[in-house]
């Protein structure tokens, strides 16, 4: 039973991103600004840092592919960037100390890397014509602030959960 808990949690987060976008009250922000929820990425990064690292990267790969197939219909972007960000973060954590504030900051850096990566890819394949400065002000800043708040809320429970998971796998 415990074996299925992690994929199930990730799947639920995967779906919750799209439901969040549908239900988010649009009056809260002016129409041009866009918040992108990155619940899945945040959780995957916590998994990479606290849980078994291999799991983090493998799940990033699987859910990257799922994201591409189900949501964007352009296979390759998230498939490539999710594992890459997980890998960079795991390398970064080798230098830094693993306390919860540091981990949250690194997670946000991961989200920024993800956003920029996805923007650059979409720009390269002409899916968007947005220039970099309006990307930063319209998408990056609202997204980062929103995900920072979410990270602060979920950091402690996620840390506990993944530490338990890592401990149970070691035994």
């Amino acid at each position: 039973m415990r074996k299925f808990l992690l994929p199930l949690l990730l799947l639920l987060l995967f779906i919750s991103e799209s439901i969040f976008i549908e239900l988010f009250p649009k009056g809260l922000l002016d129409e041009a600004r866009i918040i992108v929820p990155r619940f899945l990425m945040i959780t995957l990064l916590f998994l990479t840092i606290y849980g078994p690292k291999k799991y983090g990267i493998i799940y990033s790969f699987i859910f990257g592919l799922l994201f591409d197939v189900v949501y964007t219909e352009i296979i390759g972007i998230y498939l490539f960037i999710f594992p890459l960000v997980s890998y960079i973060v795991s390398k970064l954590m080798k230098i830094l100390q693993t306390n919860i504030v540091m981990v949250s900051l690194v997670t946000i850096i991961g989200v920024i890397l993800l956003e920029m990566g996805v923007y650059e890819m979409n720009f390269l394949i002409h899916q968007t014509s947005m220039d970099f400065s309006s990307f930063v002000s319209l998408r990056l800043i609202p997204t980062v602030i929103f995900n920072l708040v979410i990270t602060c809320i979920v950091a402690y429970p996620l840390k506990k959960h993944f530490e338990n998971l890592a401990a149970s796998l070691d035994v």
Partner: peptide, 15 residues
């Protein structure tokens, strides 16, 4: 009925 929407909204797609 709409059941999903692309969360990153680079290309606006609904399911």
């Amino acid at each position: 009925t709409v059941v999903g929407r692309n969360p990153d909204r680079w290309n606006e797609l609904l399911t």
